[in-house]
């Protein structure tokens, strides 16, 4: 097979779309870790819940938009329930307790999906308007992947504005550094944590339904994404949003291009990339030293 520039560019767009999914999952993972110090192993399951909730809604309504809303709402609600009822009693007990608990939540959700929807998985077709491709002059690119990348960038810009410019953003920035001072200044931090957990879960659910037209939905679809999202947060620096964004898109493209040039190594590419980054910068690209100490 000849490797042309066209092919490389197309594969890069595919990589960016893959990266967009990683970023959406990793941003929530990173926010939850940054504020709650919870390593959320249920995050891949929230991704899967979003895909199934969206597909089920799509079957009834035929609307892709409704599917997106349902994906966000259902995964955010399950996330909120998990934090409020299950994770909260474990705060102050060290990082491994919530880690093991969320691992358990993930098993329950995956098995629930198997029971409700079967083992073989479901698929969802894109609406006609989103199918096909567009000619950018230097190549023909799949429309949906382009929209996925653009939409993610818009969402990230809004998130950045929200964090830098709003009252809630200030609470989030302060809460990540010093929750005690927030409490003393009248903020009920338990509500902030609940909102962040639900928001992160909702983002993962959104990523799930957005990825579903490309890869379908299976009960186990969250496992691989969770591993990738963890690699993204570690490479970017635990708790760093900017790091999650750069590392997410970077890893998506790296994996995608490895698939083109050396398909046998595509699964390995991500981990090689992580090893190199950690050798050079042990706290990740944007990580703070001693975050866990």
């Amino acid at each position: 097979m000849d490797i042309t520039l066209d092919l490389v560019l197309q594969q890069a767009v595919t990589g960016l779309a893959l990266g967009a999914v990683y970023v959406l999952v990793a941003v929530g993972l990173s926010l939850i870790f940054g504020l709650l110090t919870v390593v959320n192993f249920a995050h891949g399951a929230f991704f899967m819940v979003g895909a199934y909730a969206g597909i089920a809604t799509h079957e009834y309504t035929g609307s892709f938009l409704a599917a997106g809303v349902a994906a966000v709402v259902v995964s955010a609600l399950i996330g909120a329930f998990s934090e409020r009822v299950l994770v909260r009693p474990l705060y102050g007990r060290g990082i491994d307790y919530p880690l093991l608990l969320t691992f358990g939540i993930s098993y329950v959700l995956v098995d629930a999906a198997r029971i409700l929807f079967g083992r073989q998985g479901l698929s969802i077709d894109l609406p006609e308007a989103l199918q096909g491709g567009i000619d950018l002059g230097f190549g023909y690119f799949p429309l949906y992947r382009m929209l996925l990348v653009a939409g993610t960038l818009v969402l990230l810009a809004l998130l950045w504005l929200g964090i830098e410019r709003t009252r809630w953003g200030l609470i989030i920035r302060a809460g990540a550094r010093d929750p005690l001072i927030l409490r003393v200044l009248g903020v009920d931090v338990s509500r902030v944590w609940l909102a962040i957990f639900a928001f992160g879960a909702g983002l993962a659910g959104l990523a799930g339904i957005l990825a579903a037209p490309l890869r379908g939905a299976t009960p186990e679809m969250g496992d691989g994404v969770l591993v990738s999202a963890f690699v993204v947060t570690v490479v970017g620096g635990m708790g760093s949003l900017a790091g999650a964004v750069v590392a997410g898109f970077g890893l998506g493209v790296a994996v995608s291009l490895t698939t083109l040039f050396a398909p046998a190594f595509s699964d390995l590419a991500m981990f090689v990339f992580m090893a190199i980054v950690l050798l050079v910068r042990p706290n990740g690209l944007f990580g703070r030293a001693g975050l866990l100490s």
């Binding site: 200030l170 302060a174 001072i181 200044l185 903020v187």
Partner: peptide, 19 residues
């Protein structure tokens, strides 16, 4: 407990945020 990464103004704003 001045919050790192926040300006003086933002630190003061924190004092009003829940008022």
């Amino acid at each position: 407990r001045i919050v790192p990464g926040l300006t003086v103004r933002e630190n003061i704003r924190l004092g009003l945020i829940a008022s």
